[in-house]
Design a protein around this nucleic acid. Sequence first.
DNA 1: TATGAATGAGGCTTCATTCAT
DNA 2: TATGAATGAAGCCTCATTCAT
Lengths: 214, 214, 214, 214
Amino acid sequence: MSPMPIGGSEKSRARAQAQRARILEAARECFSESGFHGASMARIGERAGMSAGLIYRYFASKAEIIRAIAEGQREVRMRTMAEVGSRLELLERVLDKLSEWRRAGLAPGAFDPALFLEVTAEAGRDPAIAALVGAQEEQACADMARIVEREALAAGVRLPPPALRRHALLLRCLVDGVILRCVRDPKLDFAQVRASLRSLVPPLEERPDQSGPV
Amino acid sequence: MSPMPIGGSEKSRARAQAQRARILEAARECFSESGFHGASMARIGERAGMSAGLIYRYFASKAEIIRAIAEGQREVRMRTMAEVGSRLELLERVLDKLSEWRRAGLAPGAFDPALFLEVTAEAGRDPAIAALVGAQEEQACADMARIVEREALAAGVRLPPPALRRHALLLRCLVDGVILRCVRDPKLDFAQVRASLRSLVPPLEERPDQSGPV
Amino acid sequence: MSPMPIGGSEKSRARAQAQRARILEAARECFSESGFHGASMARIGERAGMSAGLIYRYFASKAEIIRAIAEGQREVRMRTMAEVGSRLELLERVLDKLSEWRRAGLAPGAFDPALFLEVTAEAGRDPAIAALVGAQEEQACADMARIVEREALAAGVRLPPPALRRHALLLRCLVDGVILRCVRDPKLDFAQVRASLRSLVPPLEERPDQSGPV
Amino acid sequence: MSPMPIGGSEKSRARAQAQRARILEAARECFSESGFHGASMARIGERAGMSAGLIYRYFASKAEIIRAIAEGQREVRMRTMAEVGSRLELLERVLDKLSEWRRAGLAPGAFDPALFLEVTAEAGRDPAIAALVGAQEEQACADMARIVEREALAAGVRLPPPALRRHALLLRCLVDGVILRCVRDPKLDFAQVRASLRSLVPPLEERPDQSGPV
DNA sequence: TATGAATGAGGCTTCATTCAT
DNA sequence: TATGAATGAAGCCTCATTCAT
């Protein structure tokens, strides 16, 4: 079923991987510009420097490329979340990536908010993508909880689990919100966003739980 | 140029409006399920109970339907923002709309986050939609500033303009973030989001500006 | 089968004729501008000041309108050929009509070379039109022979029948040639054509037949 | 922009040219039978022995095929006019081509009067075709002047430029007239036309200019 | 491995024609 | 008589996908 030959020499497998990567990069660019349905296999092939037919040696269908792209976004998120010590640090990293995208446009391996939206929208259509997104969500959830925990630890604050979950959830909303904002508002002033987040993200404090059990 | 005849009797105009509404509702459903480009005119016609050709008596093209849909979302947003007295109240309203969508699915005139994403993505492709989104953004910006201002007034807090802008921007990020969250995480626990927002949205206070000029 | 009601009062029949005329005039304009296939019934109706559906009360189909138009051309030709005393006089009349068309464009009842071509082309497709054109041709043939005869009579020249036929045929070629020329060359200088015809159309002379039996 | 890839191996280019030729020939036949707008891409494809979609690998649109066909007619005309020594010789050649068409119908590379009319009519609609026709006209004009000049030279007649222009113009009218005649009158007797032309086309003579300056 | 020719399905749109009112 | 809503067929064109080479 898989179009990728299982066997083959070491070298041929390496080449196959390189081809897949080239296709994915080309697809990423095309999808970001034209959307999943607006980009044709011919254009993807053209940008990847190969015939459209050849793509089918490395991917079974266009849908599978889309899934691979969705999968690829996970890595970017993981790289972004790794080694982050506080909520603000995470947000600033996200802002950095976004303003980089705004300035430089597409770059291989970089985060692409337009694609992020495209994948999210497609998740409502393709169950396979929905599953991928779900898995990413779960991972992101855990990662953010870890970040909050680490920040609490560093601040010497003991945070009961419900409060921790609340902070993590708010953090995720903020991250997604900033991304969406960046796409919807081409004139968005990143400095102002930065200032807003810096001055308004609430510090972690030990305080009596004000909102009942969660 | 418009396919809708300007003249005509009272009754025929009324019928035409009804037909337009039926088409728009059908399109909204199809677009929400399949995306702008995944939904075919044939299916829209089918769901609207008419032949595909007839649609062109009421809309000049598919793109025009898409624009009308995008325009329609603006009204929903306006209704949501009207008469709101505080940031939390706005967020709760948004959460209400979202959980309603989660429970009941499509409903005519309701807010549809999937469509919201679709429109946002399309804005990157169709300049006409980009203009619409831009206009909505500007309006939303003003609305949210007003909400923050009103809340400050009610709380007896004097808020310098930069702080006001910061609060409004954060509010918009939160709103968008919650929407995106709702689409990406089908198991999202609204009660938990509500709790997070209630306990963590920072109160408006007069405090020395900590982050420099904005 | 005929869409025209046979019965009806005197007045209603007169009205029907008027409607038919309006439709034909509108169709003539549309066909001249856009060709038979490029003009839609809707446009014809619009220009005739009635709904497209109503046209079908007066003509069974679009093809029948086309046939009526083709039929109409015959009258124009007949008017042009009537009371003409010589070949040059006929050619000058034709040139007059053409330059009028060039100057003023469409005019009800005037000769329209574009339509003439359209009809001629359609004759290759619709046998009914082919028959009409054939009939016109026969009539034109006879008319031109008559003109040549009259000119010979006036010049006191006795023309044997074969010579007469030859002159008539040449005359028809010249008439059609001038028409086609007028369509193909928008910059055609009518004065020059006039001069060419005047100085080069051979006089009718009694001379020994040079070309064998015809 | 062109659908034809520029590069490619020698063989593939040759095949592409062959395909283009097959499509053009099929289109020529369909257009001649049904007119530009009456012939569908599906039928053209069918007659060319390929799917309609494949045509778009070789031509960007139906309009481009039409233009190529119009362009093709120019070559036929050029071949016809080359190496012709006198007006009568040209006319006889034209008659030969026409009677050939009458007898054998469509033949690849042959002149097709029906198509000639179709192109002329389309020139009134498509500016690109109008330009093509205009260019053809100019060339034909020059060619015919050359033919008249050559004939005068051979006859030892000195022809002042206005007279030359007049003869050339009359010649063009005759050529076009014969073509139109051939289309309009399916029973046209070519021998009679030939006789008419032979005995009636006026010889080139040095005579005082009878019709004033042109 | 790689090409690019080829297809068939489907998409958007137009239009002649019919019919209820 | 007159309208204009409605349809179904068709038209042009695109594209994912397959396959011979």
